[in-house]
């Protein structure tokens, strides 16, 4: 935006606040952009990293859409989990790599928010092998969950589904978004380099593909330690 004080410049600078412009953007410009150069959906969960410290305390933000969003459907999902609380806690304990996990019912989703160490698919696979039956009960209440039943015999599809529904974790440094978008589209990252001014547009297009996202990888109060290391150092056994 220009610093000049001419009337045209001040009018252009005020565009984002004007109703007609907002209307145009929302219903014409963005849909046109998406049609012309839409971004592919970016995969969920933390990205693989060679840095050991990036592989501990990884965040899972799993949003599972409810089949029936009425109070009755919501209650069914809650009951599916409530009936299995002991199994869930025992299962998480036996997987051994989980710092914390909790379930939330938010709007039309049942969410599993978890912090874990290492590779996410190993975590899920071990979890299914330990307490798959609990997931089965829940999956009946979740959209698209029926074809994953029983999870023990659809492990691969189940893991892909979880990755699909785990929130994309936007990079901690905003301009790293360009490289991820390039890679996802099968191009060499940042070659040629992107104009920083196009970042808002890229973000808008990405939020069209990934409606809900995690803003960065999250904050860690004690980077670089696994759940087992913490348990060992606290003397509570690992």
């Amino acid at each position: 935006m220009s610093d000049d004080s001419g009337w045209l410049n001040s009018y252009i600078n005020s565009l984002p606040e004007r109703g007609w412009f907002q209307f145009l953007s929302k219903y014409v410009v963005v849909p046109f952009w998406v049609w012309r150069e839409g971004r592919p959906k970016l995969p969920g969960g933390p990205r693989p990293s060679p840095q050991p410290s990036d592989n501990t305390q990884r965040m899972m933000n799993l949003l599972m859409p409810l089949k029936d969003t009425s109070p009755i459907g919501r209650a069914k999902a809650v009951m599916a989990l409530a009936q299995n609380v002991d199994e869930i806690f025992a299962g998480l304990d036996n997987v051994g790599t989980v710092h914390s996990a909790r379930f939330l019912l938010v709007e039309d989703y049942i969410c599993m928010i978890s912090v874990y160490d290492g590779d996410f698919s190993n975590y899920i696979r071990d979890f299914i092998s330990t307490i798959g039956s609990v997931f089965d009960a829940l999956m009946h209440e979740v959209e698209g969950g029926d074809k994953l039943y029983p999870s023990e015999e659809n492990v691969e599809a189940f893991i892909d589904w979880v990755r699909e529904h785990d929130l994309f974790q936007a990079p901690d440094y905003p301009f790293d978004l360009f490289g991820l978008q390039d890679e996802q589209a099968g191009r060499k990252p940042n070659d040629p380099p992107h104009d920083l001014q196009t970042l808002p547009r890229s973000l808008i297009l990405q939020l069209h593909a990934n409606r809900n996202i995690s803003l960065g990888g999250g904050y860690r109060g004690y980077p670089g330690y696994s759940a087992a290391q913490i348990r060992r150092n606290l003397g509570v056994g690992w």
Binding site: P52, N55, D117, G118, D119, S121, N122, Q229, R232
Partner: peptide
């Protein structure tokens, strides 16, 4: 995923299986 990659990414590298080598 369950065998070759699991061993490579969690055990051979990273050493998640024992807090003494993680």
């Amino acid at each position: 995923g369950a065998q070759f990659e699991a061993v490579m990414c969690d055990w051979i590298n990273f050493g998640l299986q024992d807090p003494g080598i993680t």
